[in-house]
Amino acid sequence: MNLFLNQLINGLHVGSIYALIALGYTMVYGIVKLINFAHGDILMIGAYTAVVTLVSLNWSAPAALLAAILACVLFGVLIERVAYKPLRKSPRISSLITAIGVSMLLQNTALLIFGAQSRPFPTVLHVAPLRFLGLQVSFITVLTVLVSAALMIILQVFVKASKAGKAMRAASEDYNTAQLMGINVNTTITLTFAIGCALAGIGAYLYVMAYPAVSPTMGSLPGLKAFIAAVLGGIGVIPGAMLGGFVMGIAESLTKAYISTTMSDAVVYGILILVLLVKPTGLIGSLSREKV
C-alpha cells in the first residue's frame, strides 16, 4: 500500500509540472487557435535564466525565480509580436510552421550561447523530506503539487471574474465581435501569452529543482508531454490541462511501477488515443467549448 501511495505521489509530481506547462498551451490555443510549439523552449529559457542568475550572478533563489519568470514573459511576448502577430490573418498552417521554426531558433541559439553540455542546477531548497503515515515525500514534490494547484485555481478565478479575463473569453469566443465591443484584442492576446509564459517560468524553476540539469533541448520532452496533457484534458479548457497533466503523470508512474519501465510511453500514448477515439474533444472539453 505504501509503495502504491509513493508511486502515486511520484506521478502527481511529474503530472503537476506537465499541467503547469500545459496551461500555457491551452490558453494560447483557446484564444488564437495556435499550437505554440515554442512553449517548451520558453521553459528552457526560464531554466537558463535561473541557472545563470543563481550561479554566475550569485542572486538569491527568489530573485532568480523572478528573473526566470520575467525572461519567459519577455520572450513569450516578443515571439508573439514578432513571429505570430503578422500571421494572424494567414492560414493556420503558416503559424504552426512558424511556431516550429521559432522552437528550433530558440534551441539552436541556446546551443550557440551555452554549448551542448548540460549545466547542473544548484540545490536551492534545503528542507528535510516530510514523513507521514510511514511515507517519505520530498518537500519539492509537495511544493510542486501545491504551487501548480494554487496557480490553476488563481488562473481560473482570474479568467472567470476579472475584466481582463472576461476580455480573454470574449476574444476566444468571437475575435471580431469582441473587437467591435471595444475590447483591445491585441492587448488581450499579448496578456494571454504573458500569463502562459509566466507559468512556464514557474514550471521551469520547479522542473530544474526536481531534475537539476539545464540543457538547450531540455524543453522538447516536457513540452511534448504537456501538449499531450493539454489535448488529453481538452485543449482550450483550463481545468482540462490540469486534469490531463495529472492523468499523464500518474499513468506514467504506475505503468513504470507495475507493468514495465520501458512501456510507460506506450501506455500513456495508448490512453491518449483511446480518450480521443471515445471523446475527441478530450476529457472535459465540450463541443460548444468555452475556450480559455
Partner: peptide, 20 residues
C-alpha cells in the same frame, strides 16, 4: 531490476520500487 532509457530525467518511480 529496473530500466530507464537515457535522458529520462525522472527515475523516482524506479527508485521507489528499488527502495521497496
Amino acid at each position: 531490476t529496473e530500466a530507464a532509457p537515457y535522458g529520462e530525467r525522472d527515475y523516482k518511480t524506479q527508485l521507489t520500487t528499488i527502495k521497496n
